[in-house]
Structure formats: structure tokens, C-alpha cells
């Protein structure tokens, strides 16, 4: 009679504890890769519309140096908010600030443009090396 093999082989790893540790290692690699890539490898970032709306003002010029927190542009957006469990919609103007210091390479949007979230480009920013854009 053949001796049955031990059937504790569950994943590509020996046990769930190994799998948990491997997942932690994998996440560390993934996160560090993203951070290093964004901070050191990507030369510039394209800022796309963060939400649907209308561009009302562009506060920077091409080739301008900006610091983290500087106003970049303003958009008119439809803000949805629950007040006492009732959905209220109103048009508000929202300012968008630089998340990192750097130089404006180009500006694609102009005041009056209607933009779609993640579709339309607003501007291209060359960020400082070593900081997260």
C-alpha cells in the first residue's frame, strides 16, 4: 500500500504564515518601486482633470517655478453633499494646488474649457528629483 503524501501544500508557499510574509514582502517591493519610480525616474508629470467640471482660471505660466502648495488652477465643479441625509448639489469653485515643487513645462487647458475627470490634460509639471509628485 502506498504511503499517502502529506497534503499540506496549499499555495506556492509552505503555509499561510509564509504566504502572509511573502505578501508583505511583495507589497514592500511594489510600494518602494512606485515611490522610487515617481521620485527619481519620472521626469515630469501630466496633471489631468481631477474631476468633471469647467476650468475657470489658470494661475501659472509656462516655465514658471512653483512651490509645493502654490495655486495652479481653479475649476468650477458640481459638489454633491449629503446634508441631513438629503443630497444637495451646488456649483462651487475649487482651487487646486501644487503637490510638489517644480517647473511648469506646458499648459494645455485654458479658462472656459469643460474637462472630464482623468481624460483632459491640464498641465505638465517637472518636479524636483527626490520628492513625490
Amino acid at each position: 500500500m502506498s504511503e499517502p503524501k502529506k497534503n499540506t501544500k496549499m499555495t506556492v508557499f509552505k503555509t499561510d504564515r509564509h504566504e502572509d510574509l511573502a505578501a508583505m514582502f511583495f507589497v514592500t517591493i511594489a510600494v518602494v518601486s512606485v515611490l522610487v519610480y515617481m521620485a527619481y525616474i519620472v521626469p515630469s508629470i501630466t496633471l489631468k482633470a481631477p474631476m468633471d467640471g469647467k476650468v475657470v482660471a489658470i494661475s501659472v505660466q509656462p516655465e514658471a517655478q512653483v512651490k509645493k502648495g502654490d495655486l495652479l488652477y481653479s475649476m468650477e465643479i458640481k459638489q454633491k453633499k449629503y446634508v441631513h441625509d438629503t443630497l444637495e448639489e451646488k456649483i462651487v469653485t475649487k482651487d487646486f494646488h501644487a503637490k510638489t515643487s517644480g517647473k511648469i513645462l506646458s499648459i494645455s487647458a485654458k479658462p472656459g474649457d469643460v474637462v472630464k475627470k482623468d481624460k483632459n490634460e491640464i498641465l505638465v509639471l517637472e518636479h524636483e528629483k527626490g520628492v513625490l509628485p
Binding site: 507589497v27 515611490l35 496633471l47 513625490l132
Partner: peptide, 22 residues
């Protein structure tokens, strides 16, 4: 524990600001 480590890193803004390209 990995989940809470990520929350701690996020609280310290070590993963980039909310709304950033990172």
C-alpha cells in the same frame, strides 16, 4: 499587520499626498 503599517505610512504622508500622481 501589513494593512495597519500602510495606514501608519499614509498618516505620516510617506506615500504621497492625497490627489497626487504618486
Amino acid at each position: 499587520l501589513g494593512f495597519f503599517t500602510m495606514t501608519a505610512l499614509s498618516s505620516l504622508e510617506m506615500l504621497g499626498a492625497e490627489g497626487s500622481s504618486t
